[in-house]
């Protein structure tokens, strides 16, 4: 089908690979606004290190939506926080607009967060401060990064609230989070995140806590704003069905690694990794042609960080496991796609 590029092996425990994997050239032409190379994140806990992310590489172009999907506990939120240098990165690199986050001081990082890269979270209920007005929280963000006086920042806050579809924005500024519905709160979070016009928006399960109709509204709002501002969006979800319409590309995470990456239509049409096929099996979709390959539903649970068996971490749950799977498969590139599975190592 296409040329075969075999990436460097990387061990399950996340020792930094000598030369990090090159992700698909989907962003060819435009300089990617965000590049991640062989990211490793490990939390220090009383019970020792927790290697939550052991190998993630991706590129994000301006105006692109890149979805990261995977079961709960696969390390998605950890990747999201690491993109803002808010998680303990122990290897690999994150480059934002060409700048390596590892080389920045705490002060420089603070100036980056909220201005160059912003984030919204799963729980709109608790992500806003319950005892400060929406106006305070919005204006604080705006004035943190932009040289505006109070009145101008207030004007900008009202403008942003209008953009995210909140009625009567001037009055809302005096309200507190508990006076809004979950969907409205998430809109406020989006307004806050985009108020400084960041290059990248990281949305960590932004609709998981909302009911279905509101979910669709929030997703299409995000997509409209992405198109309007040219923001690159990293959209994280455990529900692969959620991103079918809005994502340009999808990266599938399992046990801290990116195990498959493909343009959205390709991934739905022909999932390559048995895990991806399992994920799709749990989302019955009538509007898509049957996927290429048997759709066996997933059984069992993913391994805890650092507790995966040697080799492919999916092996214990995989219906197609082979002897070779006890060694770590390389990330193999095939055109715009890549997959980390011995079935596809040609």
């Amino acid at each position: 089908m296409a040329q075969n590029t075999t990436a460097q092996h990387s061990t399950a425990q996340g020792a930094a690979a000598p030369s990090p994997a090159e992700p698909s050239p989907a962003t060819a032409g435009a300089e990617p606004v965000l590049t991640v190379r062989d990211l490793q994140v490990s939390y220090q806990t009383d019970d020792g290190p927790v290697p939550a992310v052991t190998g993630v590489s991706l590129d994000l172009a301006a105006g692109e939506t890149y979805a990261i999907v995977g079961e709960s506990g696969s390390g998605k939120s950890t990747v999201a926080l690491a993109l803002l240098a808010l998680a303990p990165i122990v290897g690999g690199e994150v480059r934002l607009a060409g700048r390596d986050l590892a080389g920045l001081s705490r002060h420089e990082l603070r100036r980056l967060r909220g201005r160059e890269i912003a984030m919204i979270f799963q729980e709109p209920m608790t992500s806003l401060n319950p005892v400060l007005t929406l106006g305070y929280q919005l204006i604080e963000t705006i004035r943190l990064h932009q040289p505006l006086d109070r009145a101008a920042a207030r004007g900008r806050a009202i403008e942003m609230l209008e953009k995210v579809g909140i009625s009567d924005p001037a009055r809302r500024l005096a309200q507190y989070p508990h006076e809004l519905s979950g969907g409205m709160r998430q809109r406020v979070m989006i307004a806050m995140a985009l108020s400084c016009n960041p290059r990248v928006l990281v949305a960590d399960e932004p609709t998981t806590a909302l009911d279905v109709t509101v979910q669709a509204q929030i997703l299409s709002l995000l997509d409209d704003l992405r198109a309007e501002f040219g923001t690159g969006v990293v959209l994280i979800t455990h529900d692969i069905g959620v991103v079918a319409e809005t994502a340009d590309r999808i990266g599938v995470m399992y046990a801290g690694q990116l195990i498959e990456e493909a343009p959205t239509a390709d991934l739905f049409a022909s999932p390559m990794h048995p895990y991806t096929r399992g994920l799709l099996a749990s989302v019955p979709r009538v509007d898509l042609p049957p996927a290429g390959g048997p759709l066996a539903a997933l059984h069992g649970t993913p391994p805890k960080p650092g507790k995966a068996p040697p080799g492919c971490p999916f092996r214990p749950r995989c219906g197609e496991a082979m002897d070779v799977c006890s060694t770590m498969p390389p990330l193999t590139r095939q055109g715009l796609r890549s997959v980390r599975c011995w079935l596809h190592d040609r």
Partner: peptide, 23 residues
């Protein structure tokens, strides 16, 4: 969670502790 939000928007620790958390 709101502390994480405050950090993600680039607020300094002094403001986070002195205003957001203390209140």
């Amino acid at each position: 969670d709101y502390v994480r939000t405050a950090r993600a928007k680039g607020l300094g620790e002094r403001m986070i502790v002195g205003v957001h958390v203390l209140k």
